[in-house]
Design a protein around this nucleic acid. Structure first.
Lengths: 166, 166
DNA sequence: GCGAGCGCGAAATATTATTGCGCATCCGGA
DNA sequence: TCCGGATGCGCAATAATATTTCGCGCTCGC
């Protein structure tokens, strides 16, 4: 469900705004082939319906002095819901942790972290993360380089699938 | 380097646009405490200097029919630069792969993937990823739920650090 | 202390966002 | 077949915003 309620213009709007979220409505309307007022109405509707959760500038961490990016794989002692939630809340409170995903399998959580330098990350790792309640194991991997970092979803795949089923 | 060249207003601009990338320049100027023209000039400068790499709508994958998110940990046979680059290029070509990070340690790459359903991901996994040249091992973990997903960097940490050093 | 460079803000103008409204189209029922 | 009702478009008008221009004050190096 969800994507079926959207027509081709809506999907094009989402694709364009995912690619350039600060595009003017006039330009957006031109690209999707309708006039500005209905285009803006569609955008508002998509926002209110939750298809668009927000807009964010993509800032460059290195330029801003965040030299270190790390993935941390975390295992917990207890997987009771109370304990899972407690750990998630800690992650929300830690500024270096940018993403926290609960996983299946042997790893319980994967965290994407960012830090100004290795030493400040080490301090966070030993004094905060590893020593947090219920944390059983933490494996970390430094990001050497990033080959791809696309936001959201591949709209071209969506079009293909809808095209076949339509 | 980098963040030092920015004054407090620049950093506030980046923080605000990271939080809401579609804010009008008038509103942004009001929040950072200067008038609209210099505010817009600063934004343009930040964009051109690479502090801002772009703007993106944050779309909701589930609403759009992408029910499955997966982290894939990939090991390669050869870590020669040619082979690393070749694998990275494949990742760029696979639409289901949204992020591809090269890591240190036993894992060579971590991929963040999105797919419409489990079966289409399985097809991708077996027919594309696992069977790609030079791929030695692939471990996948399904995302059960996402507790935190913040973009970019924690500007409050940046302010603290600069505050102490200034 | 004195010009040069820098960055601000006021004002004017160009563009864009937003609202109001009439029209065409597409059903579902008489 | 014909008739509302609902949906969604586009035009036109207005409000808001973006962008340019320009003069002023500030700081800094000499």
């Amino acid at each position: 469900m969800g994507a079926n309620r959207l027509d081709e213009i809506d999907r094009k709007i989402l694709a364009e705004l995912q690619d350039d979220g600060r595009m003017t409505n006039v330009e957006l309307a031109r690209r999707v082939g309708i006039s500005a007022p209905p285009c803006l109405r569609r955008v508002r509707t998509l926002e209110e319906a939750g298809y668009i959760r927000g807009y964010h500038a993509d800032v460059n961490p290195r330029e801003l002095g965040f030299e270190v990016q790390v993935f941390a794989m975390v295992g917990l002692h207890s997987q009771a819901e109370v304990d899972l939630s407690a750990f998630e809340q800690r992650c929300r409170d830690w500024p270096f942790v940018r993403e926290c995903h609960m996983l299946n399998g042997e790893i319980d959580f994967i965290l994407k972290c960012v830090a100004p330098d290795l030493s400040s990350f080490q301090t966070f790792l030993t004094e905060e993360l590893t020593s947090a309640p219920n944390v059983a194991s933490v494996k970390t991997s430094l990001v050497i380089r990033c080959a791809k970092d696309k936001p959201g979803v591949p709209f071209d795949v969506l079009e293909e699938r809808l095209g076949r089923s339509a």
